[in-house]
């Protein structure tokens, strides 16, 4: 009878996970992957997800299925991905509210976005533009801010705690503008009221306002970024408009549940980088005014940490708790 020593058994036990991990990394992905999106089809996040999923799936040799789990400001999707098996087959295409704002806005979240997600890489950025109605007398941001100090105004957002809301509060703090917040369900009805001059001001995604600016039905006062939008070359940046440090942007990136094996993450990161170089994907982003921006896992993690530092205090200052 062959004796198996206790030591051998222990060694085998120690080696087993290692060999398993090697096997998963080599053969990964061996079945379709699921890319969870917390927002409805047709929106910016969904659009990025579908383009990225198609190209990454092609690159990795497996289908990547987009799964829209809408609801509760993206928290339903986040909690679903956080609870999934961390094997690289359940991923999320998340945005700044899901990963940054929500952890401050919803104190009772059952998960911590900072701890329970691991970033794979950034995929895209959306520029935000400050607009007023064409009936407004203000031709630039300082003039507008001065006007609201004389006669208080209103601004719209696509909801409490949205980038539009927090971004405008940032602008109010920097400029001393006096405006009441009017929240809407989503961007389209809000922009309608700016078009009709019922609202004085709004900051919204480039894709949502650029068509009106070009048609001359909305006036853009600033691009809330460090560079001008190629689509709107005459609109000054927020720095040029005189409020240097209030960059407001929306970003999207790919995330996996924490404890996903590092080699799987590396493979996904490389796949994402390659997908973002694809000219077809870039064209699809371009028509929707989405800027492809790649940051690798480390740079993205540092960026997200900085975003938390920036938005956390603003949300606390506003006393926002949802």
């Amino acid at each position: 009878m062959t004796r198996v020593s206790r030591r051998t058994v222990l060694a085998a036990g120690l080696l087993l996970p290692a060999t398993l991990r090697a096997a998963t990394a080599d053969s990964y992905p061996s079945r379709p992957m699921r890319l969870v999106v917390g927002f409805a089809p047709g929106g910016a996040v969904d659009l990025v997800a579908r383009a990225v999923a198609e190209e990454m799936g092609r690159g990795l040799g497996q289908t990547m299925i987009v799964d829209n789990r809408t609801g509760a400001s993206g928290n339903i999707a986040s909690s679903e991905v956080v609870r999934a098996v961390p094997d690289g087959y359940t991923l999320m295409l998340g945005n700044s509210p899901q990963l940054v704002m929500n952890s401050f806005l919803f104190p009772n979240l059952a998960f911590d976005p900072a701890r329970d997600f691991v970033p794979i890489g950034q995929a895209a950025t959306v520029r935000f533009i400050a607009v007023v109605s064409t009936q407004s007398a203000a031709k630039d941001l300082p003039a507008f801010a001065a006007m609201t100090r004389q006669r208080p105004g209103t601004y719209g957002s696509s909801g409490n705690g949205s980038v539009q809301h927090l971004g405008t509060e940032l602008f109010k703090a920097a400029s001393g503008a006096v405006m009441t917040h009017v929240p809407y369900r989503g961007s389209a009805p809000m922009i309608t009221d700016v078009l009709a001059a019922r609202l004085d001001f709004a900051i919204d995604a480039e894709s949502a306002v650029a068509p009106y600016v070009k048609a001359g039905t909305l006036r853009a006062l600033a691009t809330m970024a460090t560079t001008r939008a190629p689509n709107l070359p005459d609109v000054p940046t927020i720095g040029e408009a005189g409020y240097g440090d209030i960059v407001v942007e929306g970003w999207q990136g790919m995330f996996a549940p924490a404890r996903t094996p590092p080699d799987v993450l590396a493979k996904l990161g490389a796949g994402l980088k390659q997908a973002l170089d694809n000219p077809d994907l870039r064209h699809r982003f371009d028509v929707a005014s989405i800027v492809p921006v790649y940051r690798d896992a480390d740079a993205f993690a540092a960026f997200i940490a900085a975003e938390r530092e920036r938005w956390g205090p603003i949300i606390a200052l506003l006393g926002l708790k949802l």
Partner: peptide, 13 residues
């Protein structure tokens, strides 16, 4: 909103 997304995807604003 979904139809609008479809228009935009097709390069029509």
């Amino acid at each position: 909103a979904l139809m609008m997304a479809a228009f935009i995807l097709k390069g029509v604003q």
